[in-house]
Design a protein around this nucleic acid. Structure first.
Lengths: 233, 233
DNA sequence: TCGCGGATTTATGCATACATTAACAAACGC
DNA sequence: GCGTTTGTTAATGTATGCATAAATCCGCGA
């Protein structure tokens, strides 16, 4: 469920990260995990105290968070965690739909190795297993892994970075609606079909399957937010 | 030619911008105009001196530029203007193609007002006029306006922001190849056709026309960079 | 009770100070 | 002559100081 990168084979990772980097990660974690809910405000001094450092690195972290689109810096009120409205989700999903559909097509056309294909299949397997146990958190994590892997397989780093950023913006809303939406059985089917299309190197099919998949998901989420009267999360 | 936003109706603009903001704009301008060419390095202190301020706001500006993907901050060497390789251009254009094709479709489906349509037509007109005079700089500016307007008409601010960011990354390479490429007569035709499709509210046609347009442009640019042996700009 | 003007507080934006450590170079041993 | 080591330099990362201006508070008048 954390969107943060796994540490990989980093047993000896020189954890010599700067305070600014620690501040950035800590605050982003707080926001993504909803410990700092939308609308919360946090002054530079408060954050600095909380993180045991001075205002300077905190400030730099806030600047990065602002450019990530997750907070807003308001001169006398510290940073404010941006709420995500259904209109925002519409924007985010329109872009994600476009980019991920393209990613699916690219990956299918380019072809993938057996291991890469297996990675996708594993993610689908985990989604199905999680759904069978009604474990929605695991399902969401596996679903996220699938989408992440798909995009990574394009090899386009800019594409990856943009998709990651938008996914993070949508993260809280997705988590909140996870238990309010119908069981995502369709998603698993869609992903299995996409894997087949990729294996068959059918770019057209891959694009159309995944485009529809993302579009459906977006419509569902936006509709849910609207119908439940959540103006913003 | 400047990619920076026009000042609009800002006769009374309270030019009370922070030093950090000034530093950001100044350095971005220097980079986009190629006064700081790819590979240049600039120390915090140097930049501060040059801009008549202390290191603090310069540092904040550099952080933003790094997130924009135009520079890299290397701990003991200041910031370095990132070169753009043909592989980078490939990445950038793959994303732009996807997003702008989507934008074209969205705009066509949604429909535009008469004034908005006229704005697009005006841009095409300027492109044709410029090309008739062989004024490539004007052509590039009008072309940029067309693409910018198209994306703006979607109303999707995230889409706009991403496209702007990627266009800026590609800016220098585009300028450099402007006079090395064949005359862009096809572009004008493509845009005129797109305007027609939008007027007819034909989303499918709009997408396919603009997708092809961007894909062609990307292939041409990447091919040009490769064939001329420019490994990076 | 409510509105308003001025004093006060305080968060910020920027400058500056300082310790750290990477980069460079010179000296040294082989 | 070449690789290594050590000493020096300097750019950074962070802390802190300070002036500014916005927000709040308070008292007063209606």
């Amino acid at each position: 469920m954390p969107l943060t990168p796994k540490d990989g084979a980093s047993h000896f990772e020189q954890d010599r990260v700067s305070s600014a980097e620690r501040a950035y990660r800590a605050m982003k974690d707080l926001i993504l995990s909803n410990e700092l809910p939308a609308g919360s405000q946090l002054l530079e001094q408060e954050a600095a105290l909380r993180l045991g450092m001075s205002r300077t690195p905190v400030r730099e972290a806030m600047i990065r968070l602002e450019q990530d689109g997750v907070v807003e810096i308001r001169p006398r009120h510290g940073m404010r965690v941006l709420p995500v409205s259904s209109a925002d989700m519409r924007e985010i999903y329109d872009v994600l739909t476009s980019l991920e559909a393209t990613a699916a097509e690219m990956v299918a056309r380019k072809g993938v190795t057996a291991e890469e294909l297996q990675g996708l299949k594993d993610a689908v397997g985990e989604m199905e297993a999680a759904l069978a146990c009604d474990n929605l958190d695991d399902w969401a994590a596996a679903d996220h892994r699938f989408h992440e892997l798909l995009v990574k397989l394009t090899g386009n780093q800019r594409l990856q970075q943009i998709v990651t950023q938008l996914s993070e913006q949508a993260h809280r809303a997705r988590m909140l609606t996870l238990r309010l939406r119908p069981k995502p059985v369709g998603s698993n089917r869609d992903h299995a079909m996409l894997v087949d299309a990729i294996a068959a190197r059918d770019g057209e099919a891959a694009r159309s399957i995944h485009h529809e998949h993302r579009a459906k998901a977006g419509d569902m989420l936006v509709g849910l937010l609207d119908s439940l009267g959540f103006k913003q999360l």
